[in-house]
Amino acid sequence: MVDGRQVHGSWTWAIALMIGAIVSGCQSKSGVSDTLDPAAIAATPAPAGGAVIVPAKGVQSLGTGPTKITMLLPLSAPGTTGETGRKMLDGAKLAMADLGDKLLTLTVEDTKGDSTFASELAMKAITTDAKAVIGPVELPSAQHLAKLSGSKHPPVLALADDFAGAPGVYAVRLSEADSAAAGAAGLAAKGRKKFVLLVAAGPDAATVEKRVANGLSIYGAALAVTIPYSASDGGTKVVDDMQAVVDAPDAIIIASGGASPSAILAALKSKGIPGKATAVVGTNRWLEHSLEPGFEGAYIATLDASETGPIADRFKSTYNYPADTDVAYAYDMVALTAGIASSVGPDGFSRQVLENRSGFRGSTGLFRFRTDGASERSMPFYQVQQGALKLVEKSISGY
C-alpha cells in the first residue's frame, strides 16, 4: 500500500478496483464507480488460442458495444515502432475480452508509423462519431493534436513517448517531469530539504521545474536553484555553475532529456558526489541508456517494466510472451474507456470525468490526468546498485 506520506492531498487511493477504476461523480456519492470487479478481472479466463505478434494492417473492429472508440497504432511500421504497435494491439484485445466486448466497439486503425497519416486518422476520428481516441503513438502527431483550439473534441489518450500533454489531449506514458518529481519526493520524504535541479534546456524544462518544486513542497523541501543546460555546456561547466550559486545541497536532480547524463555524473564524481551528504536523483529517461558505472548510487523513480499487475499471467498464457509497459498502457486505456462507458454511458467522456482527482488504478499502477493533459503516477523508487535497479520503496509519488 501507499502510505499517507507518499501520496498527498485529495488523491484518493482507497479505490476498490484493481484495473481501470472509473470516476462517476454524477452518479455515485463516493465519486468512484464499482462496475469493474477486481476479483472477476483477475479470474477472467484467457481468450482461446496462443497468439503471436504478427503484422496487422488496415482497420480492425473489436467488440459489439454501443460506445465507439478509435485506437491508432503503428501496426505495419518497421522495426521497434511496429513491434510496439502490435504489442499494444494484443493488450487492447485482452482488455476487450476482459471488460469491453459488450460495452465498446473498438476500431483499430493502422497509422503505419507515419505521423502525417496518424494525424489525418486522428482528425477523422474526433470529427466523426468516436467518443474517445486512444493513441497515436507517433509523437509529432500527438503534438499536432495538442495544438487544436477549443475543447469540444472527444478526449485523446495519447500513447506517444515523451509527450507533455495538452488540455483534452492526455499524456498516458510516464513523463520525465513526473519521474523527476517522484524521485525528488522520495528523498524529501526521508528528510532531505535542499535540492538542485539540473535540467536539459528545451520546451519541457519549465514543466520539469514546476513539477519538481510542487513535489518537494509536500515535504517542506525546496529547490535552491534550477540550472538549465545545453548539451554543449559539458558536465564540468554545469557542475561549476551549480557550485558557484549553492553550497552543499542535500540532493541534485538531473533531468537530462534524451541525452545521457554521463558527463555530468563524471563531473559530480570528481567532486565526491554522490556521497553521504549529497545524493543524486535521475529520471526514467536515464534508462534509455545502459546503466553505466557512473550511474552507481543514483536514485530513480520509474515504472517496473516487468510488473503488469493482474494481467501478467493471463497475457503470457494467451499471447506466449510477457506483457511489458507498452502492453499495459494499451490495456489500461481500453479498460478506462470501457469503465466510463459502463458507469457513465457513451456520453460520459468529459474532462470532468477523466480529470477527477481520485484518479484510476490500472495494471501500470495508480494514475490520474491533470487539467493540462499531463499524467501523474505512483511508481516504484529505486537506487542503482552494482549496475542494477534495487527497490527502495514499492510506491512513491510527487503529488
Rank of each mutant, 00 (worst) to 15 (best):
T105W: 07
A146W: 14
T127H: 12
T111C: 04
T111L: 00
L174M: 13
G100H: 04
G150K: 08
A166I: 07
A95M: 12
K93D: 12
A95T: 06
F117C: 05
I134L: 08
T105V: 11
S115P: 06
S175G: 15
K102R: 15
M123P: 11
S149C: 09
T116V: 15
L159C: 08
L139W: 00
G165V: 02
S179H: 10
A171P: 09
D110K: 03
A166D: 00
D161W: 10
P136A: 05
D162I: 09
R173V: 03
S149P: 03
L94A: 11
A177I: 07
V137S: 03
L145A: 02
A132R: 04
D178V: 08
A177S: 15
I134M: 05
F117S: 09
V172N: 06
M96V: 14
L159Q: 07
A95Q: 11
D110H: 09
G165H: 05
F163H: 04
V156W: 04
H153V: 09
A95E: 13
V133R: 00
V137Y: 02
A180V: 09
F117G: 12
E109W: 02
T105C: 09
E138A: 02
P167V: 09
Y170S: 04
L139C: 07
T107H: 06
L106N: 08
E109C: 08
A171S: 14
A160D: 07
K112W: 03
L94I: 11
R173F: 09
L121P: 01
L157R: 08
M123T: 15
K112Q: 14
K93A: 15
L121I: 01
K102M: 10
G150A: 08
L121D: 01
L159I: 12
A125L: 06
G135W: 05
D129I: 10
D101K: 15
A132K: 08
L99K: 10
G100Y: 09
A158M: 08
I126K: 01
V172M: 12
A142E: 00
A97M: 05
G135N: 07
F163S: 05
L148R: 07
L159E: 05
D98G: 06
A122C: 11
P167C: 10
A92E: 11
L174T: 12
D161H: 12
T107S: 12
G135F: 09
D114W: 13
S149K: 14
V108P: 01
K93S: 15
G113N: 02
L139E: 03
A130I: 01
T128Q: 14
E138G: 03
A130Y: 06
S151L: 12
A132N: 03
V133D: 01
A177P: 07
P140G: 10
D178F: 07
G150D: 10
T116N: 11
S149R: 14
A142L: 03
K93L: 13
D161C: 02
S151T: 15
D98T: 08
P136E: 00
L99Q: 11
G100K: 06
L103C: 05
K147P: 02
K152W: 14
K131C: 01
L139V: 09
I126T: 01
S115A: 15
K124A: 14
Y170G: 04
I126M: 08
K124S: 15
T116C: 01
H144N: 13
E109I: 04
V133L: 12
E138W: 02
L121T: 01
E109Q: 15
K102N: 14
M96E: 11
G168P: 08
